[in-house]
Amino acid sequence: MKHYFDTDTVCLTSHTLALPIVEIAIQRGVNSNRLLKGTKLFHEDLQNPQKKISFTQLNTLVSNAVRLLPDDGLSFLLGQHWLFNQTSHSGQALLNSKHLTQMSRVLQIKQFELCPFVFFVPYRSQTHTHYILNFAIATPPPLVAAFYFEMITAQISALCKWRFGFVNKITIKLPFSKPKHIEQYYAHLAIQYQFDYPCFSLCIPNELLHVKQVSTPPIMCHYHLQQAHNTPHAVGFIQYVCDLLLQEPKSVCDDIAQQLDISPATLKRKFKQHNTSMQTLKDTLQKQLAVISIGEKGYSNEQAAEQLNFTDLTNFRRTFKRWTGMTPSQLREIMMLKT
């Protein structure tokens, strides 16, 4: 069995995101043919519950939607729609989880059904747990990536408000500057949010991770997990490579190619197809660890450099600035201003 799928693999259900995007856009007066231009899909195709699409097709659709409905809040509406229309057993297991820790576990074991295009890496500090979200299949263009991040932010905000009621204590940190349509954030989000962070991060105080939901019987999560389809699924190409790099950070292209049972030349073509590279993925994982260590855990430059196996402190500072656009000291100042 192939353990990963590519950006052009037709394996994503159309009714989860693609069909709602089209339906909401049509309600706003957008012609479906313009919306689906370049996707090789038709509106009638998406109405078939068995229709599968690729991540490339979904990205093209989102790109068209962003262009045709700029600043419209479609991403936030889509996130809320996704949350309140979880009819699958995996979705019901998520909504009936006992607490946030169990929710994160359900998201991990049922990722393909619930969130196949992103994955998260948890980092725990003394006071908070930080979930860093990354794209699992391929790296979308910046505007498309921002759309997905807004959609996920809306999902998290609605979930916390609906199921827990502690929205003021959870913060989403977004990897882009404050957008022109900031009024959509005011209208749709209840949780706290920040812009210009080096990565997409969900920050939760540790004491909230095991706060129990009062509106759902915990046994229902176990029941729905038992009923859910248990066939193991592959993960996206980027996630698969990142998993290998997290296990063996010093891996080179030849090592990864061998793990994927392809030639190094084919691997390089795959990286290009998925809008990334070996060095980019390595830098991303190291950057995220450095940002958490310095910005959230309070590590000194020396401690962070040692953790990332840098022997030269000047080189670490230079590399950190290349990764994030700021020095470690500037990140600390920003974090102090926002606390």
Results as ranks from 00 to 15, higher is better:
residue 5 F to S: 06
residue 9 T to N: 10
residue 18 A to K: 04
residue 21 I to Y: 05
residue 22 V to A: 13
residue 22 V to H: 02
residue 22 V to L: 14
residue 23 E to I: 12
residue 27 Q to C: 13
residue 28 R to S: 12
residue 34 R to L: 14
residue 43 H to F: 15
residue 44 E to R: 13
residue 50 Q to Y: 13
residue 51 K to S: 06
residue 60 T to F: 07
residue 62 V to N: 01
residue 62 V to R: 02
residue 63 S to W: 04
residue 64 N to V: 06
residue 74 L to M: 07
residue 76 F to R: 02
residue 79 G to T: 08
residue 81 H to K: 15
residue 86 Q to V: 02
residue 91 G to E: 01
residue 92 Q to I: 00
residue 93 A to T: 02
residue 98 K to T: 15
residue 98 K to Y: 10
residue 100 L to P: 06
residue 104 S to K: 12
residue 110 K to I: 02
residue 110 K to G: 03
residue 114 L to N: 05
residue 115 C to W: 00
residue 119 F to D: 00
residue 125 S to C: 02
residue 127 T to R: 03
residue 132 I to T: 04
residue 138 A to M: 13
residue 143 L to F: 04
residue 145 A to T: 01
residue 149 F to H: 12
residue 149 F to E: 11
residue 156 I to L: 10
residue 157 S to F: 08
residue 162 W to E: 09
residue 166 F to M: 02
residue 173 K to Q: 12
residue 179 P to V: 00
residue 185 Y to R: 09
residue 188 H to S: 15
residue 192 Q to H: 13
residue 199 C to S: 13
residue 205 P to D: 07
residue 210 H to C: 09
residue 215 S to C: 10
residue 216 T to S: 08
residue 231 T to G: 08
residue 233 H to M: 05
residue 236 G to L: 09
residue 251 S to I: 03
residue 252 V to I: 15
residue 254 D to A: 11
residue 258 Q to I: 05
residue 260 L to F: 09
residue 263 S to C: 02
residue 266 T to P: 03
residue 278 M to D: 08
residue 285 L to R: 01
residue 287 K to P: 03
residue 289 L to H: 11
residue 293 S to C: 03
residue 295 G to N: 00
residue 300 S to C: 07
residue 301 N to W: 04
residue 301 N to Q: 10
residue 303 Q to M: 11
residue 304 A to W: 02
residue 309 N to T: 12
residue 317 R to P: 07
residue 318 R to N: 14
residue 319 T to N: 05
residue 321 K to V: 11
residue 321 K to R: 15
residue 324 T to H: 10
residue 329 S to M: 09
residue 338 K to C: 06
